[in-house]
Amino acid sequence: MAKRYGMVIDLHKCVGCAGCDIACKSENNVTDGFAWSNHILETHGTFPDVQFRYIPTLCNHCEDAPCVANCPTTAMHKSEDGLTLHDASKCIGCRACQVACPYGVIYFNEKAPHPRFMEDDEALIPGVTSTGQETAEASGAPIPYYNPARAETYPDIRPKGIVEKCTFCDHRLAKGELPACVDACPADARLFGDLDDPNSAPAQALAKHDSDVLKPEQGTKPRVFYIRDY
């Protein structure tokens, strides 16, 4: 039976370490300047009455995903498990998904990715330091922090001219593993699982606590929920 994957982020547990962001970058070979796993820093009030919020963000894998509805080639599509996925081979780089997404979680490769390693052929101090290309070559991979497992369901490194986004680590889910950001969270602030399974961690958390989603007025029905806002 198809699952209905979703994530719950416990804001009370989240310490704002950005470990999720880094884990995601490493797991998915995400290029400089892109952040499939991202965060909002929000400050209210005036000292001493100040409120600070750290809100982790990622693709919401919306049930009514506007990126899917506006993609002219069905490159953006919904999987059986409710993941919002991107078929890179179909993408024409029209950026309609970016325009339609209210959350700013889709990135477009305007230039070739990972320029620090793939294009850098000038050493900072010639004869002393290595160029980016030499560093990558020494690591035996296109980039030193390369993860070949990413290529199991999506291009390992997305080329110039197409968009890219969080996949809820579908390559890990296929092996029964949790998304990298969930695994990496030192505070166990992220709960991931089948929302239709009442015994799953996110379903139980949602049953116990009131929850919010980002921009509910957009009607996109996000599957990333936030609990215990403070």
Binding site: N70, K90, C91, I92, G93, C94, G161
Partner: peptide, 17 residues
């Protein structure tokens, strides 16, 4: 971004777009 892949528009059915 990939103008030569424009044919993807014609071989896929995306009536909501």
């Amino acid at each position: 971004g990939r103008p030569f892949h424009i044919f993807e528009t014609f071989i896929n059915f995306a009536p909501t777009a």
